[in-house]
Design a protein around this nucleic acid. Structure first.
Lengths: 109, 109
DNA sequence: TTTTACTTGACATCATTTGTCAAATTTAAT
DNA sequence: ATTAAATTTGACAAATGATGTCAAGTAAAA
């Protein structure tokens, strides 16, 4: 019986930690994202959700792996969307099948 | 090597098929949902997405299993959200972990 | 061909997302 | 302790997306 402990850092926690470790100010990072520092402050404290564009630019300036950060971001979004459903696990499994199906029939739109 | 064939009916296809098999008219079903039949027509042809409320009332009037239909609905939504990402599979796996984590730490909001 | 059912597109309304700004608070430096 | 810098907060605004109405068009059935 192996039970792993997961950190489950939020995107906000990840970027705050990295920003601070790089010694950057909110205003510096925010200006690279083209947003007000108020938003970035909120994003870091999980009070607001970043846009996809925010994430991409954050990965750039904070030297984080873009794909990793996007995965964090999107999975977090999905998790919050379905966590209140008791069929959350079914939903994810079904979604996996649908994605496979859609990708194999690569007819865009 | 077993490869299953999945139907992958959309929610739209499911409800149109069931409505027709019950001999119900768009206008009859739509009125039960409290929406214009135009919307229902579009939902059935995947031109518009149903709301969650639509789904619940559809399950009622069409005698479909409510949870099944909700799973179809939500998984479809998620699948379309991420199908264009090449890390779609990673996202779903990460989402599963996060859901587990969130559910185990059942501190609402 | 006339009626009935469905589809289409233009538009309306409302909620959510995404952002700005300035004042208030907190943290750090002198 | 004061000041200066950094962060946080809340009120607001604009843009976008979700959800719906309506009426005119098309297709199917009688």
């Amino acid at each position: 019986m192996s039970s792993k402990i997961f950190h489950m850092e939020t995107v906000g926690q990840i970027i705050r930690a990295k920003r601070e470790s790089l010694g950057l100010l909110l205003r510096q990072v925010a200006s690279h994202l083209d947003i007000d520092q108020a938003i970035l402050s909120k994003i870091e404290r999980n009070e607001r959700k970043p846009s996809k564009d925010n994430i991409i630019k954050l990965a750039e300036i904070l030297k984080l792996d873009k794909e990793d950060l996007l995965v964090q971001f999107m999975s977090e979004k999905i998790a919050y969307e379905i966590v209140d459903e008791d069929c959350a696990s079914k939903v994810l499994k079904a979604a996996e099948q649908k994605v496979k199906y859609l990708k194999s029939n690569l007819i865009k739109h």
